[in-house]
Nucleic acid binder design. Structure first.
Length: 430
RNA sequence: GGCCCCAUCGUCUAGCCUGGCCUAGGACGUCAGGUUCUCAGCCUGUAAACACCGGUUCAAAUCCGGUUGGGGCUACCA
């Protein structure tokens, strides 16, 4: 049975690169009907933090990558020591004493050619005479990364190691260790790295790196996954949008790209918008409630859900990120709209008292306050006044919403309601 | 420096393995139009790439070699 693992180190948040590694491991395990093992690599006791473990687990759950087993390296120190002693006894490792008298166990690297058959890159050859002897157990008693990794992958029967490109040079060291421990080699697949827009490593400097940051910004997990998928794999037939379940069916590890990819927020925004468009407004509304409540835009225990749903539907097709709704639709929740200075300058400098009061009057008189009738009365009014519709539409929008952009004006008026629309119009009547 | 990986539009990619169908396709972004009302929505269109040099071949984006460029590793970090 296929067994893969994702092995994050809790010395920081789950970042984009880690999320992508987790994604491909999960995807592969699903496509092979195998197991997905999670291993927390917390051997660095100084830098490892419980809060990071929690954060990583939360992010993985949010992305939907459920694991079948979970292990913590900090609970397995005796296993590493036991195997190190084994190598000591077989003469493949030796002890080195530090000046303070502490002992480290070192693996004697034999000089030989090492061939690696990478599932993504094909054959890679190394010369181990260029590799120096490897520390297995540090003088403080904790194992080194390469040793703990091999012991665990071996004991946990990991069949496929799918990880970042940056581990290629660790692989010959690990292959040697497998052989020394008397274990069969797993298959290796090295994923290309994700770079920041500046061409270097994706870092905080070049944008958000933590998966949880994208969650907070209002990206949907399905959208983020779809984007990450596209970064080094293509579903075929020129398709850009592919759901995770479909990806499981189409995925083949040999089709993963070899080239490092640049993380492009613009395309992520586009994909997120595609998912937002297709999303269930009920779910989007649920996700927005806490944020709207935090801004005092609504009382979470007592609000008009039908109204909120209608507003979500009005905006969802134009949002790059769900959270943008909070700012873009603020005028529906505020007593008075926040008028954008530039918008006011552009559309409300001339005196529109006559037009505004006439329109307000017509709205007030509408027997049936519905979008079609609102538009009809508006069109009639501009016809009578002999002005172009757009000459009045833009100023009215700014007066009602404070913005130059947004949903169609007549929908805005309808959902704003007769009272509030008229009041906001009359504010500009001298 | 040494070792290793990589190389198609600005970005993500299809094509490469199994040379000819490639005057290199798609998407994001850009720009330009259009949208009885805006755009950050929608529609249409435009510009934009096989890093370079050799070789193999009737034929190379595709195979081989080198150069250049980018990246990674080179810790008693992971």
């Amino acid at each position: 049975m296929v067994r893969v693992r994702f092995a994050p180190s809790p010395t920081g948040n789950l970042h984009i690169g880690g999320g992508r590694t987790a994604l491909f491991n999960w995807l592969f395990s699903q496509s092979q009907k195998g197991a997905f093992v999670l291993r927390i690599e917390d051997t660095d006791q100084l830098r490892s933090k419980q809060e990071f473990v929690d954060e990583i687990l939360d992010s993985l759950k949010w992305l939907g990558f459920n694991w079948d087993e979970i292990y913590y390296q900090s609970q397995r120190f005796e296993r590493y020591r036991w195997h190190a002693e084994r190598l000591l006894q077989s003469g493949l490792a030796y002890i080195e004493k530090s000046p303070e008298g502490k002992e480290a166990i070192i693996y004697k690297v034999p000089a030989q050619k090492i061939k690696l058959q990478d599932l993504i890159r094909g054959q890679i050859e190394f010369d181990s005479s260029l590799i120096k002897d490897q520390v297995l157990i540090k003088s403080d008693g904790t194992p080194t990364y390469n040793f703990a990794c091999v012991v665990d992958d071996g004991e946990m029967n990991i069949t496929h190691i799918i990880r970042g490109d940056d581990h290629i040079s660790n692989t010959p060291k690990q292959i040697l260790l497998y052989t020394a421990l008397g274990w069969e080699l797993p298959q290796f697949a090295h994923l290309p790295l994700i770079m920041g827009v500046d061409g270097g490593r994706l870092s905080k400097r070049t944008g958000a790196t933590a998966i949880s940051d994208y969650r907070k910004m209002g990206y949907l997990p399905e959208a983020l996954i779809n984007y990450l998928l596209l970064l080094s794999w293509a579903p075929g037939e020129n398709r850009e949008l592919v759901g995770i379940q479909e990806a499981v069916e189409l995925f083949e590890i040999k089709n993963v790209n070899k080239t490092a990819a640049t993380f492009d927020l613009k395309k992520l925004d586009w994909i997120n918008n595609q998912y937002l468009k297709a999303a269930d407004p009920e779910k989007l509304a649920d996700a927005l409630i806490p944020q709207l409540a935090a801004k005092q835009y609504l009382n979470p225990d007592h609000f008009d859900r039908a109204q909120l749903l209608a507003l979500v539907k009005l905006f969802q097709a134009r949002l790059p990120r769900l959270n943008d709704f909070v700012d873009w639709a603020d005028f529906f929740f505020l007593e008075e709209p926040l008028i954008d200075a530039a918008a006011q300058e552009k559309y409300l400098t001339q005196d529109l008292s006559k037009e505004f009061s006439l329109f307000s009057e017509r709205l007030g008189k509408l027997a049936v306050f519905e979008i079609a009738y609102i538009e009809e009365s508006f069109r009639q009014l501009v016809a009578e006044l002999g002005i172009e519709a757009k000459k009045l539409i833009h100023p009215v929008r700014v007066a009602l919403t404070g913005k130059t952009i947004g949903p169609g004006l007549f929908e805005v008026i309808y959902y704003l309601g007769k009272e509030r629309s008229c009041r906001r119009l009359l504010k500009w009547v001298k």
